[in-house]
Design a binder for these strands. Structure first.
Length: 112
DNA sequence: ACACTGACCACTG
DNA sequence: CCAGTGGCCAGTG
């Protein structure tokens, strides 16, 4: 597979699109799934470009704490939380309640 | 070509 | 338990 130069934006987007409604995952989990566990920053950075892709649910991607760190990068800061709540995810103080339960690990769910 | 930055994560003390 | 530090890849000044 031509993963050499890594179009890793697309990969990140693909994974993000696979996140089930009402579930969330972390940058690190995606990075890990893509085989770049330490490059979680890049995932976040890639999400920055997710604005160009319409079907990328960036609101379902949070940091390992379940905290909505990227909400400031949305059109409006409250948008991220609202989108999550629309899917039944409870958000309090910018962090996801029951994150551990709602966590969707691509390395497990998409396990090869 | 160099240095800094970034929606992060894990390890050490 | 909290704070500090390194690592990781790519883009920008």
């Amino acid at each position: 597979m031509p993963l050499d130069k890594v179009n890793f934006f697309q990969d990140v987007f693909e994974v993000a699109k696979l996140i089930p409604k009402g579930r969330v995952t972390s940058y690190g989990a995606i990075a890990n799934y893509l085989g770049m566990k330490s490059s979680a920053r890049m995932v976040g950075w890639a999400m920055n470009a997710s604005h160009t892709e319409k079907d990328v649910p960036a609101h379902r991607v949070v940091n390992r704490n379940g905290m909505l760190t990227g909400k400031h990068h949305f059109e409006t800061p409250k948008l991220m939380q609202e989108l999550l709540e629309q899917e039944g995810v409870v958000v309090k103080e910018d962090k996801i309640i029951g994150f551990k339960t709602l966590f969707w690990n691509p390395s497990v769910e998409l396990a090869l």
